[in-house]
Amino acid sequence: MSAMLVSERQPIEGTTLFDGDMAQRGYALNAMCYSFNDAENREEFRRDEEAYCRKYHLTPGQRRAVADRDVLGMIAEGGNVYYLAKLAGIWGLNVQDLGAAQTGLSVDAFKAKLLSYSE
């Protein structure tokens, strides 16, 4: 029996704690992203995304989320943002772009939201 998710013990709105259950679920996707520390691997992914995802045995759900550039989907499939950021880098996306994608805001609106905390 697996332990309850930390987030189920004490749910935090809009937040997934990357715990043992998520770490197991996301292992293949995160392993692929970790490989992107190497420039040759980033190039190989760019050349043939499908083959590269197969090589890392992404689950169908992970593959779909990557193909759709669906950040919340990747998180739900166990992706950890520290590793996903390396994949986002291949696509030329920074953490404001990721934030916008996850919150449904435009990038400008997301940046404005960040600035609003300083007021």
């Binding site: 709105e13 809009g14 919150t103 997301f110 905390y117």
Partner: peptide
């Protein structure tokens, strides 16, 4: 700071 999830962009001064 929070980079991930629907609460991305959360800051608490």
């Amino acid at each position: 700071h929070q980079l991930d999830g629907a609460r991305a962009g959360f800051i608490n001064s």
